[in-house]
Design a protein around this nucleic acid. Structure first.
Lengths: 171, 171
DNA sequence: GGGTACATGTAATCAGTTACATGATTTA
DNA sequence: TAAATCATGTAACTGATTACATGTACCC
């Protein structure tokens, strides 16, 4: 990535603030309904990471003077630049699919055919549920910007529902 | 996961040794042609992780007496048991897709249509290349055990080639 | 026998996770 | 006004990455 100090999480935070997120909790909310589905991390990161970005001059922090004294973040010109550079440079790292179910299938040579079917059924269920979530987001779409990534999610889940279903019903 | 001391990487190592891998380098080789495609990690982990598993009594370590004095690992009964328990218990964690290209698309609202197409073309290329690799493995398959996970990979890559191709050619 | 690729590891650092803690707001 | 939930953070730990270092085998 352009700036070697920045990780994918850095850009998620930077991007969220660019999209108008102001506090850590606000970011958490937005992640929960979008990127969090494919690139999750715990909320504590949302307190650590912005601090790093402020350090680098990519975000600005302001403290509420009363009430909760929350940290309010905004993106700097340098931050906007860094984000823009990053989205424009080609993505090199290959896609990683962290899927425990697949891992179990891969190392499951001690499983009986029935046990494989159980695993597959459970996985099919999980992907069906996720698919249902994406479909409901699709219907209530209010961010047309995210329609494309959402579609990637839909395609992915449909593919995996089908993959596991085939395994679950195989004789 | 059953044993809270164990991570996904622990099970990858355990699984590889169960499949007959003996040294760290041996594991590295096997990962490179299989799980590494969807769950990668640096080779230094393959020196740290087995040590942890020996500590827990799930692997046994033996040192070559001459030459390179390599560490030779083998799985213990407890290790086999732990692996078996793990593959049999349902996978709970949802699938994570760590794809920088998707992230860039998600946060790329400053991109022009042309820039989006460039991103999509580059991503399509990457997935096509990966697909070609999987297809060549498919033809030369010597581990029928892994045919199913390989098929998941093929389906995944085909889905994403199609996804990015559509974006790249959209007007 | 000098170079190159293969093979084996360690050390230091840091990102990321887990666990804890508590304040503010809503609701019953 | 007590309980529950929402919201905001910090501390400690450790898994994972990066960088370094060196040995061994092959080959020109």
């Amino acid at each position: 990535m352009s700036n070697p100090n920045l990780t994918a999480v850095s850009y998620v935070v930077l991007g969220l603030v660019a999209h108008g997120a102001t506090t850590a909790y606000d970011m958490k909310q937005k992640i929960a309904g979008s990127v969090g589905y494919f690139w999750a991390f715990p909320h504590s990161q949302l307190y650590a990471e912005p601090a790093r970005l402020v350090e680098l001059g990519l975000l600005e922090e302001e403290r509420e003077q009363r009430g909760r004294r929350r940290r309010i973040f905004s993106i700097t010109e340098a931050g906007r630049q860094a984000l823009g550079d990053w989205v424009r440079e080609p993505a090199t790292e290959p896609t990683q699919i962290r899927d425990t179910g697949l891992l179990k299938l891969f190392f499951g040579d001690s499983l009986s055919p029935q046990e494989v079917r159980s695993l597959a059924e459970a996985q099919e269920r999980v992907h069906r549920e996720r698919l249902a979530v994406y479909e409901s987001i699709e219907h209530a779409i209010e961010e047309p910007r995210h329609a494309d990534t959402l579609r990637a999610g839909l395609l992915f889940e449909r593919t995996f529902v089908e993959f596991w279903r085939e395994l679950a019903t195989r004789r």
